Amino acid sequence: MPISLKKGQKVSLTKENPGLTKVVVGLGWDVNQYDTGGAFDLDAAAFLLADSGKVSRSEDFVFYGNLKHPSGCAEHMGDNLTGAGDGDDEQIRINLSAVPENISKIAFTVTIYEAETRRQNFGQVSNAFIRIYNELTGEEILRYDLGEDFSIETAIVFGELYKNNGEWKFNAIGCGYQGGLAALCASYGVEVE
Rank of each mutant, 00 (worst) to 15 (best):
D86T: 09
D88A: 15
D89I: 08
E90H: 02
E90W: 02
Q91N: 15
Q91M: 06
I92M: 12
I92C: 14
R93Y: 03
I94L: 07
N95M: 01
N95W: 03
L96P: 06
L96G: 11
S97C: 10
A98C: 11
A98Y: 06
V99L: 10
V99M: 07
P100M: 05
E101T: 06
E101M: 07
S104Q: 07
K105L: 00
K105F: 01
K105W: 04
K105A: 07
I106S: 04
I106E: 01
I106A: 06
I106F: 04
I106R: 00
F108P: 00
T109E: 01
T109G: 05
V110E: 15
V110F: 13
T111D: 03
T111S: 12
I112Y: 05
I112A: 05
Y113D: 02
Y113I: 01
Y113H: 10
E114R: 10
E114C: 03
E114Y: 08
A115P: 00
E116S: 13
E116A: 08
R118Q: 11
R119D: 13
R119S: 15
Q120K: 05
F122A: 09
F122C: 04
F122R: 00
S126Y: 05
S126K: 07
N127I: 05
N127A: 13
N127E: 14
A128M: 13
A128S: 12
F129P: 02
F129N: 15
I130P: 00
I132P: 03
N134K: 01
E135D: 14
E135P: 09
L136Y: 09
L136H: 06
T137S: 14
T137W: 09
G138I: 04
E139T: 14
E140F: 11
E140G: 03
I141W: 10
I141N: 10
L142Y: 12
L142M: 14
L142C: 11
L142N: 07
R143Y: 04
R143N: 01
Y144G: 02
D145T: 02
G147A: 05
E148T: 05
D149S: 14
F150Y: 11
S151V: 07
S151T: 15
I152P: 07
I152R: 09
I152E: 15
I152W: 01
E153M: 04
E153Q: 13
E153K: 06
E153W: 08
A155L: 04
A155E: 06
A155V: 11
A155Q: 09
V157M: 02
V157T: 06
V157C: 00
E160D: 07
E160L: 12
L161R: 04
Y162D: 14
K163R: 11
N164E: 11
E167H: 09
E167A: 15
E167T: 10
W168I: 07
W168D: 08
K169R: 11
N171C: 12
N171F: 10
A172Y: 08
A172L: 06
I173A: 02
I173E: 03
G174L: 11
C175R: 02
G176S: 15
Q178G: 14
Q178S: 13
Q178K: 10
Q178T: 15
G179E: 13
G179M: 13
L181S: 13
L181I: 11
A182M: 09
A183K: 13
A183R: 06
L184E: 13
C185L: 07
A186D: 14
G189T: 03
G189R: 05
V190P: 09
V190G: 10
V190T: 07
